[in-house]
């Protein structure tokens, strides 16, 4: 399962998540969503530290975060 899940149909391509990601794994994709925006995408799920910054700044509540834990 992805650590960073971006709901591409909600994304408006504002770029705020990309600007604050400390490990620089977010980019604007070259696809268009149904509303005509190019959604953000994660280039390397393994590098995600689950810091939560992208979800915090996303104005469109498009990002959810998960992380593996040992049980």
């Amino acid at each position: 399962m992805e650590r960073v899940s971006i709901d591409e149909e909600r994304c408006k391509s504002c770029g705020l998540c990309i600007s604050i990601c400390p490990v620089k794994i977010l980019i604007i994709s070259d696809r268009l969503n149904a509303r005509g925006f190019r959604p953000a995408q994660c280039t390397d799920q393994d590098k995600c530290t689950s810091c939560g910054s992208c979800a915090l700044i996303c104005p469109d509540i498009a990002i959810e975060l998960h992380r593996e834990v040992k049980v």
Binding site: M1, R3, S50, G52, A55, L56, I61, I63, E64, L65, H66, R67, E68, V69, K70, V71
Partner: peptide, 13 residues
């Protein structure tokens, strides 16, 4: 021991 995904952030209900 197994690995599970824990929710760090999800949409408010």
């Amino acid at each position: 021991m197994a690995e599970q995904m824990k929710v760090i952030y999800e949409r408010p209900r």
